[in-house]
Design a binder for these strands. Structure first.
Length: 412
DNA sequence: TCTGGGGTCCTAGGACCC
DNA sequence: TCTGGGGTCCTAGGACCC
């Protein structure tokens, strides 16, 4: 492995700059997070190829152990392909509640090192470590101690990248994986960055990669050589400026303590496309119930409702509507979802996915205009929500769903 | 092999207002 | 007679990230 488990610098002759603590951006990324949490719950999984993901016919891989990656299994790969590549693998459905708990644990460890923590997802974060210069000999020492603390207090492996440029630290933690630490000393950024494939840059996905390929650009170094004007013609001013900056190792962003969510949504892909109006409405009702529960847990309501549909041919559309007041209870969400559904030309196409979400979030503590048509209805809806919060999604169902539900379960 | 679920941000046209 | 300019919000779609 190119990366050591002890603090290392990138390149040679760089000790001087490290002494000055120039590298204040630390990126930490948990290794195969879901898989490692599952191994903690069931140690017999240690050493085996483990894949966490949707187990149905339309599932994809959410997390794969390094044993599974060794035979080609990757995140976001259809589960069927993973099974073909790795028939001996252990396949597990995700337990997001458990991962959420573990996420809070590791973030507590992060915050015990620095007050400036920016979470990027459940399992990775940036830390500004400039405030630790009096307590540690070097940024590398901070990284080593943080990795040790996460391992001791949460029982999980993590990789760390450190540099003087925010996005370089993220690339460094990736290069350090698994279970490693990499410091890119200030001044060595281009040496580290330019040989990399452009696809690794934040903001270069499949579509942008294809555009860059058409310009003959494969590596970040080649990207750096393209005049921004040329880039702009293909990618537009915003993206081209962003990429030109990254290719020159320029990143003005600071560590921003994470702000609250801007939208909350739920969606579901169905094993078999649904098509009857009844099925669609009932599926929407379930989604609205889940969304309402999430909103109540977060103490939020939304001013804009967004309906998402994906057809059997994968065409995906959305319809949204905004209001002066915010909504959060199931009946209101369902009414609006059906109104939005009425704006869609479905024809005879099957529906593969339905989703419902809200944005324009407001705190429910703060006074809001209710869009309910009667106060009684609101009280009933609130009561139903409270039961759901305590006993789960299926504890309270409108009469139209109960027969259906009993059939599915095959019991009373 | 046939493409999850939860998000963020950007673009672009049109409405609307001053 | 033929049409301002700027700001902001709304809506739809798409790229991208983990």
């Amino acid at each position: 492995m190119a990366v050591s488990h002890t603090p290392v610098g990138f390149g040679a002759g760089t000790v001087g700059s490290m002494d000055r603590f120039d590298e204040r951006f630390l990126h930490i990324d948990m290794d195969a997070f879901f898989v490692e949490v599952e191994r903690q719950r069931d140690p017999t999984l240690i050493g085996l190829p483990v894949i966490v993901g949707g187990l149905g016919r339309r599932g994809v891989v959410a997390s794969a152990s390094y044993e599974a990656r060794a035979v080609g299994v990757r995140s976001a790969m259809p589960i069927g392909e993973a099974r073909r590549l790795c028939p001996q693998g252990r396949y597990l459905a995700p337990s997001h509640g458990v991962y959420g708990e573990k996420s809070r644990e590791v973030f507590d460890v992060f915050r015990s090192f620095s007050p400036k923590v920016e979470g990027l997802s459940v399992d990775e974060a940036f830390l500004d470590i400039s405030g630790l210069r009096l307590h540690f000999a070097s940024p590398a020492a901070v990284g080593a101690d943080l990795r040790r603390a996460v391992r001791e207090r949460a029982g999980l492996p993590a990789s760390v990248g450190i540099s003087a440029v925010k996005f370089i630290s993220k690339l460094a933690s990736d290069a350090a994986k698994p279970d490693g630490l990499l410091v890119v000393p200030a001044g060595d950024e281009l040496k580290f960055l330019h040989p990399m494939p452009v696809r690794r840059l934040w903001g270069v996905g499949e579509a942008t990669h294809a555009s860059l390929e058409a310009l003959g650009v494969e590596t970040v170094g080649e990207l750096a050589a393209i005049p921004q004007g040329v880039l702009s013609k293909r990618l537009g001013p915003t993206l081209s400026l962003h990429l030109s900056n990254l290719a020159a190792a320029v990143d003005p962003r600071d560590v921003e303590s994470s702000s609250g969510a801007k939208s909350i949504s739920v969606e579901e892909t169905y094993e078999i496309d649904i098509s009857s109006e009844d099925e669609v409405e009932q599926a929407l009702l379930r989604l609205c119930g889940r969304l309402s529960r999430r909103l109540h847990q977060a103490g939020r309501a939304g001013r804009t409702v967004n309906l998402k549909l994906r057809f059997g041919d994968f065409e995906t559309i959305s319809r949204s509507e905004s209001f002066s007041g915010a909504i959060d209870v199931t009946p209101d969400l369902w009414d609006e979802a059906r109104r939005l559904l009425g704006k869609v030309e479905i024809g005879r196409r099957g529906i593969r996915l339905l989703g419902i979400g809200v944005s324009g979030l407001v705190d429910t503590e703060e006074p809001r205009q209710l869009t309910m048509d009667s106060p009684e209805r609101s009280i009933a809806a609130e009561a139903a929500e409270q039961v759901r919060e305590r006993f789960g999604d299926d504890a309270v169902l409108p009469a139209s769903l109960i027969a259906d539900d009993t059939e599915e379960r095959g019991d009373g």
